[in-house]
Protein backbone atom coordinates (compact mmCIF):
# COMPACT_ATOMS: atom_id res chain seq x y z
CA UNK A 1 0.00 0.00 0.00
CA UNK A 2 2.70 2.48 1.03
CA UNK A 3 6.33 2.08 0.06
CA UNK A 4 9.08 4.39 1.19
CA UNK A 5 12.40 3.61 -0.51
CA UNK A 6 15.67 5.06 0.77
CA UNK A 7 14.35 8.56 1.28
CA UNK A 8 16.76 11.38 2.06
CA UNK A 9 15.66 14.90 2.91
CA UNK A 10 17.51 18.06 3.76
CA UNK A 11 16.13 21.25 5.29
CA UNK A 12 18.72 23.61 3.85
CA UNK A 13 21.98 22.07 5.06
CA UNK A 14 20.34 20.00 7.79
CA UNK A 15 20.11 16.33 6.86
CA UNK A 16 16.79 15.37 8.41
CA UNK A 17 15.99 12.02 6.83
CA UNK A 18 18.93 9.73 6.20
CA UNK A 19 17.78 6.82 4.12
CA UNK A 20 14.30 5.96 5.40
CA UNK A 21 12.84 2.74 3.99
CA UNK A 22 9.62 1.17 5.13
CA UNK A 23 6.55 -0.60 3.84
CA UNK A 24 3.00 -0.57 5.07
CA UNK A 25 0.62 -3.29 3.91
CA UNK A 26 -3.09 -2.76 3.40
CA UNK A 27 -4.96 -2.81 6.68
CA UNK A 28 -1.79 -2.50 8.75
CA UNK A 29 -1.48 -0.04 11.62
CA UNK A 30 2.06 1.25 11.96
CA UNK A 31 3.04 3.47 14.88
CA UNK A 32 6.14 5.65 14.62
CA UNK A 33 7.84 6.77 17.80
CA UNK A 34 10.93 8.81 18.51
CA UNK A 35 12.28 11.92 20.16
CA UNK A 36 11.33 15.45 19.06
CA UNK A 37 13.36 16.39 16.04
CA UNK A 38 14.06 12.80 15.07
CA UNK A 39 12.25 13.32 11.78
CA UNK A 40 9.16 11.23 12.43
CA UNK A 41 6.68 13.98 11.56
CA UNK A 42 8.72 14.87 8.51
CA UNK A 43 8.34 11.35 7.14
CA UNK A 44 4.59 11.68 7.36
CA UNK A 45 4.56 15.08 5.68
CA UNK A 46 6.66 13.71 2.84
CA UNK A 47 4.16 10.93 2.21
CA UNK A 48 1.36 13.30 1.26
CA UNK A 49 3.66 15.69 -0.48
CA UNK A 50 3.61 18.58 1.98
CA UNK A 51 7.40 18.35 2.05
CA UNK A 52 9.56 17.52 -0.97
CA UNK A 53 12.24 14.82 -0.82
CA UNK A 54 15.64 15.11 -2.45
CA UNK A 55 16.49 11.42 -2.85
CA UNK A 56 14.56 8.16 -2.88
CA UNK A 57 10.97 7.37 -3.76
CA UNK A 58 7.62 7.29 -2.05
CA UNK A 59 4.87 5.19 -3.62
CA UNK A 60 1.24 5.25 -2.53
CA UNK A 61 -0.56 2.26 -4.03
CA UNK A 62 2.00 2.22 -6.82
CA UNK A 63 1.75 5.95 -7.56
CA UNK A 64 4.86 8.08 -7.16
CA UNK A 65 4.52 11.03 -4.78
CA UNK A 66 6.07 14.20 -6.15
CA UNK A 67 5.53 17.27 -4.00
CA UNK A 68 4.67 20.46 -5.94
CA UNK A 69 3.41 18.46 -8.92
CA UNK A 70 -0.15 18.50 -10.23
CA UNK A 71 -0.42 14.77 -9.78
CA UNK A 72 0.10 14.86 -6.03
CA UNK A 73 -3.35 16.41 -5.68
CA UNK A 74 -4.94 13.22 -6.93
CA UNK A 75 -2.95 11.17 -4.46
CA UNK A 76 -4.05 13.46 -1.63
CA UNK A 77 -7.68 12.66 -2.39
CA UNK A 78 -6.91 9.12 -1.29
CA UNK A 79 -4.62 9.89 1.64
CA UNK A 80 -6.13 11.43 4.76
CA UNK A 81 -3.95 13.62 6.98
CA UNK A 82 -4.77 14.71 10.51
CA UNK A 83 -2.68 17.55 11.99
CA UNK A 84 -1.41 18.19 15.47
CA UNK A 85 -2.99 21.65 15.43
CA UNK A 86 -6.28 20.38 13.91
CA UNK A 87 -6.33 23.13 11.23
CA UNK A 88 -10.10 23.25 11.03
CA UNK A 89 -11.50 26.01 8.83
CA UNK A 90 -12.59 28.64 11.36
CA UNK A 91 -15.58 30.15 9.58
CA UNK A 92 -17.27 26.89 8.66
CA UNK A 93 -19.41 24.72 10.94
CA UNK A 94 -18.32 21.18 11.77
CA UNK A 95 -20.62 19.79 9.11
CA UNK A 96 -19.37 22.30 6.54
CA UNK A 97 -15.76 21.56 7.41
CA UNK A 98 -16.35 17.88 6.69
CA UNK A 99 -18.38 18.34 3.50
CA UNK A 100 -16.39 21.16 1.86
CA UNK A 101 -13.73 19.05 0.19
CA UNK A 102 -16.31 16.50 -0.89
CA UNK A 103 -18.18 19.21 -2.75
CA UNK A 104 -15.34 21.06 -4.40
CA UNK A 105 -12.74 18.33 -4.90
CA UNK A 106 -14.80 15.22 -5.48
CA UNK A 107 -17.71 17.18 -6.94
CA UNK A 108 -20.23 15.34 -4.78
CA UNK A 109 -23.68 16.97 -4.94
CA UNK A 110 -24.44 19.07 -1.83
CA UNK A 111 -27.20 16.88 -0.37
CA UNK A 112 -25.13 13.76 -0.68
CA UNK A 113 -22.12 15.53 0.80
CA UNK A 114 -24.19 16.67 3.73
CA UNK A 115 -25.34 13.12 4.33
CA UNK A 116 -21.81 11.76 4.27
CA UNK A 117 -20.71 14.53 6.65
CA UNK A 118 -23.44 13.68 9.12
CA UNK A 119 -22.50 10.03 8.90
CA UNK A 120 -18.81 10.73 9.50
CA UNK A 121 -19.47 13.05 12.41
CA UNK A 122 -21.69 10.33 13.84
CA UNK A 123 -18.83 7.86 13.59
CA UNK A 124 -16.63 10.12 15.69
CA UNK A 125 -19.43 10.72 18.18
CA UNK A 126 -20.31 14.31 17.30
CA UNK A 127 -23.80 14.00 15.83
CA UNK A 128 -25.00 16.77 18.12
CA UNK A 129 -22.33 19.26 17.00
CA UNK A 130 -23.09 19.50 13.30
CA UNK A 131 -23.80 23.24 13.38
CA UNK A 132 -21.07 24.19 15.81
CA UNK A 133 -18.13 26.39 14.82
CA UNK A 134 -14.58 25.33 15.74
CA UNK A 135 -14.23 27.99 18.42
CA UNK A 136 -17.27 26.53 20.15
CA UNK A 137 -15.71 23.08 20.42
CA UNK A 138 -13.19 21.63 22.83
CA UNK A 139 -9.79 20.50 21.57
CA UNK A 140 -10.79 16.88 21.58
CA UNK A 141 -13.98 17.63 19.68
CA UNK A 142 -12.10 19.73 17.13
CA UNK A 143 -9.62 16.94 16.52
CA UNK A 144 -12.46 14.45 16.06
CA UNK A 145 -14.03 16.77 13.48
CA UNK A 146 -10.64 16.89 11.76
CA UNK A 147 -10.59 13.11 11.66
CA UNK A 148 -14.15 13.02 10.29
CA UNK A 149 -13.11 15.59 7.66
CA UNK A 150 -10.27 13.38 6.48
CA UNK A 151 -12.42 10.22 6.61
CA UNK A 152 -15.18 11.75 4.52
CA UNK A 153 -12.93 11.53 1.47
CA UNK A 154 -12.89 7.71 1.78
CA UNK A 155 -9.12 7.52 1.93
CA UNK A 156 -7.12 4.34 1.41
CA UNK A 157 -4.52 5.49 3.90
CA UNK A 158 -4.76 7.70 7.01
CA UNK A 159 -1.80 9.61 8.41
CA UNK A 160 -1.90 10.94 11.98
CA UNK A 161 0.74 13.51 12.96
CA UNK A 162 0.95 13.63 16.78
CA UNK A 163 -2.75 14.33 16.87
CA UNK A 164 -3.08 14.21 20.65
CA UNK A 165 0.03 16.19 21.57
CA UNK A 166 -1.81 19.52 21.63
CA UNK A 167 -4.68 18.27 23.74
CA UNK A 168 -5.32 18.51 27.46
CA UNK A 169 -4.81 15.08 29.02
CA UNK A 170 -8.47 14.41 29.75
CA UNK A 171 -9.41 14.98 26.10
CA UNK A 172 -6.85 12.57 24.67
CA UNK A 173 -8.89 9.46 25.38
CA UNK A 174 -11.84 10.34 23.17
CA UNK A 175 -9.57 10.88 20.17
CA UNK A 176 -7.62 7.68 20.74
CA UNK A 177 -10.88 5.76 20.96
CA UNK A 178 -11.91 7.01 17.52
CA UNK A 179 -8.54 6.01 16.14
CA UNK A 180 -8.77 2.59 17.72
CA UNK A 181 -12.20 2.01 16.18
CA UNK A 182 -10.81 2.96 12.84
CA UNK A 183 -7.92 0.56 13.18
CA UNK A 184 -10.17 -2.28 14.17
CA UNK A 185 -12.28 -1.50 11.14
CA UNK A 186 -9.35 -2.31 8.90
CA UNK A 187 -8.05 1.13 7.92
CA UNK A 188 -4.43 1.39 6.84
CA UNK A 189 -2.87 3.86 9.27
CA UNK A 190 0.50 5.39 10.00
CA UNK A 191 0.44 7.10 13.37
CA UNK A 192 3.16 9.31 14.81
CA UNK A 193 2.53 9.54 18.53
CA UNK A 194 3.85 9.57 22.08
CA UNK A 195 0.90 7.59 23.38
CA UNK A 196 2.47 4.26 24.25
CA UNK A 197 -0.76 2.81 25.55
CA UNK A 198 -2.33 3.32 22.15
CA UNK A 199 0.65 1.77 20.41
CA UNK A 200 0.48 -1.29 22.62
CA UNK A 201 -3.25 -1.74 22.06
CA UNK A 202 -3.55 -1.13 18.37
CA UNK A 203 -0.24 -1.26 16.53
CA UNK A 204 0.66 -4.14 14.26
CA UNK A 205 4.17 -2.80 14.04
CA UNK A 206 6.18 -0.10 15.77
CA UNK A 207 9.02 1.87 14.21
CA UNK A 208 11.55 3.76 16.28
CA UNK A 209 13.09 6.74 14.49
CA UNK A 210 16.32 8.19 15.81
CA UNK A 211 18.17 11.10 14.17
CA UNK A 212 16.62 10.59 10.76
CA UNK A 213 16.96 6.84 10.55
CA UNK A 214 14.80 3.88 11.47
CA UNK A 215 16.82 2.50 14.36
CA UNK A 216 14.58 -0.40 15.26
CA UNK A 217 11.44 -2.06 14.04
CA UNK A 218 9.21 -4.80 15.36
CA UNK A 219 5.95 -5.77 17.02
CA UNK A 220 4.78 -3.98 20.13
CA UNK A 221 6.13 -6.68 22.44
CA UNK A 222 9.50 -6.71 20.78
CA UNK A 223 9.89 -2.96 20.98
CA UNK A 224 8.63 -2.36 24.47
CA UNK A 225 9.64 -5.49 26.32
CA UNK A 226 12.88 -6.36 24.57
CA UNK A 227 14.37 -3.27 22.96
CA UNK A 228 17.74 -3.94 21.37
CA UNK A 229 18.82 -0.47 20.34
CA UNK A 230 20.23 1.50 23.26
CA UNK A 231 18.77 4.80 22.07
CA UNK A 232 15.42 3.09 22.06
CA UNK A 233 15.97 1.77 25.53
CA UNK A 234 16.77 5.20 26.96
CA UNK A 235 13.84 6.68 25.04
CA UNK A 236 11.40 4.19 26.53
CA UNK A 237 12.79 4.80 29.97
CA UNK A 238 12.38 8.53 29.63
CA UNK A 239 8.73 8.07 28.70
CA UNK A 240 7.72 5.56 31.31
Amino acid sequence: MLKIENVHKWFGSLHVLKGISMEVARGEVVVVIGRSGSGKSTILRCVNGLEPIQQGRILVDGELVEAHSRHVRKIREEVGFVFQSFNLFPYYTAQENVSLALKIVKKVPPDQARGIAEQMLGRVGLSDKLAAYPDQLSGGQQQRVAIARALAMSPKLMLFDEVTSALDPELVGEVLKVMQDLAEGGMTMVVVTHEMGFARAVADRVLFVHEGQIAEEGTTEQIFSAPRNENLRSFIQSIL
Binding site: N48, G49, L50, R73, K74, R76, E77, V79, G80, F81, F83, S85, N87, L88, F89, L100, A101, I104, V105, K106, A146, R149, A150, M153
Partner: peptide, 20 residues
Protein backbone atom coordinates in the same frame (compact mmCIF):
# COMPACT_ATOMS: atom_id res chain seq x y z
CA UNK B 1 -1.82 25.02 8.66
CA UNK B 2 -5.00 26.17 6.92
CA UNK B 3 -3.27 25.86 3.53
CA UNK B 4 -1.89 22.44 4.44
CA UNK B 5 -5.29 21.19 5.60
CA UNK B 6 -6.82 22.27 2.32
CA UNK B 7 -4.03 20.70 0.27
CA UNK B 8 -4.19 17.48 2.27
CA UNK B 9 -7.84 17.18 1.31
CA UNK B 10 -6.84 17.30 -2.34
CA UNK B 11 -7.73 20.94 -3.01
CA UNK B 12 -5.82 22.93 -5.59
CA UNK B 13 -4.15 26.29 -4.83
CA UNK B 14 -7.09 28.24 -6.26
CA UNK B 15 -9.58 26.11 -4.38
CA UNK B 16 -7.83 26.66 -1.08
CA UNK B 17 -7.61 30.37 -1.86
CA UNK B 18 -11.28 30.67 -2.72
CA UNK B 19 -12.88 28.51 -0.05
CA UNK B 20 -10.51 28.68 2.89
Amino acid sequence: GQWEAGWSLGMSYMQVMRWV
